[in-house]
Computed example of a mutant assay.
Amino acid sequence: MKKPSPNEREALLISLLMQLFTGEITEGQLLRTLRKDLLNMSQTEYAALVKVSRRTLSDTERDTGSQSLAVLNAIFRPFGLKAGLLPRNPALMKKLLAEDTAPDSTR
């Protein structure tokens, strides 16, 4: 499998984040796709990279367990991401995203 270019990596990351923010995918699905498609790494390899157990990584990808913010931040750090607060309501998230991308002369 060929490694994606920096532009392809960024486009994939943005696309996946938009899917996450609109509720189309879960955090676990995001992580699994990034691990496989961007890094082409097995769970064992990636778990060693981020210094968590393979079981913790597997649980995170399956959206099970209750990982701490520190663990989530460690797991997502290689992708330039960190855990944070998002609206649970998809309609509110879409409105927030629309306002963030709308032209605004007061910024």
Results as ranks from 00 to 15, higher is better:
Arg32Glu: 08
Arg32Pro: 00
Pro103Gly: 09
Ile25Pro: 00
Leu31Tyr: 01
Met41Gly: 04
Val71Gln: 02
Tyr46Thr: 06
Ser105Leu: 12
Leu13Phe: 04
Met41Tyr: 09
Leu31His: 00
Leu12Phe: 07
Asn40Glu: 15
Asp100Glu: 15
Thr22Cys: 04
Ser58Leu: 10
Thr26Leu: 00
Lys82Phe: 02
Leu69Met: 11
Gly84His: 08
Gly28Thr: 01
Phe76Asn: 05
Thr22Leu: 04
Asn7Met: 14
Ile14Gln: 15
Ser53Glu: 12
Lys51Ser: 15
Ala74Lys: 09
Glu61Arg: 00
Lys51Thr: 15
Ser68Tyr: 05
Leu85Trp: 13
Leu97Ile: 09
Leu38His: 07
Leu97Asp: 02
Arg54Lys: 12
Leu17Pro: 01
Ala102His: 10
Pro4Lys: 08
Met1His: 13
Gly28Tyr: 01
Leu20Asn: 03
Ala48Ile: 11
Ser66Val: 11
Thr44His: 12
Asp37Ala: 09
Glu24Met: 10
Met93Asn: 10
Gly65Met: 11
Phe79Ile: 07
Ala70Tyr: 11
Val50Ala: 04
Ser15Glu: 12
Leu12Ile: 01
Ala74Thr: 07
Thr101Cys: 10
Leu12Val: 08
Pro87Glu: 07
Glu24Trp: 05
Glu8Met: 09
Arg62Glu: 07
Ser58Gly: 10
Leu39Ile: 05
Leu13Cys: 08
Gly80Asn: 03
Leu20Met: 06
Ser68Phe: 05
Glu10Ala: 14
Ser53Lys: 08
Asp100Lys: 11
Ala83Met: 15
Gly23Ile: 03
Arg54Phe: 03
Thr33Pro: 01
Thr56Asn: 10
Ala47Lys: 00
Ser5Thr: 15
Arg32His: 06
Arg55Met: 13
Arg55Gly: 15
Pro78Asn: 03
Gln43Lys: 13
Ala102Arg: 15
Thr26Asn: 05
Glu27Cys: 04
Thr101Ala: 14
Met93Glu: 11
Lys94Thr: 11
Ile75Ala: 00
Glu61Leu: 03
Met18Phe: 12
Gln19Asp: 13
Ala74Glu: 08
Thr33Ala: 05
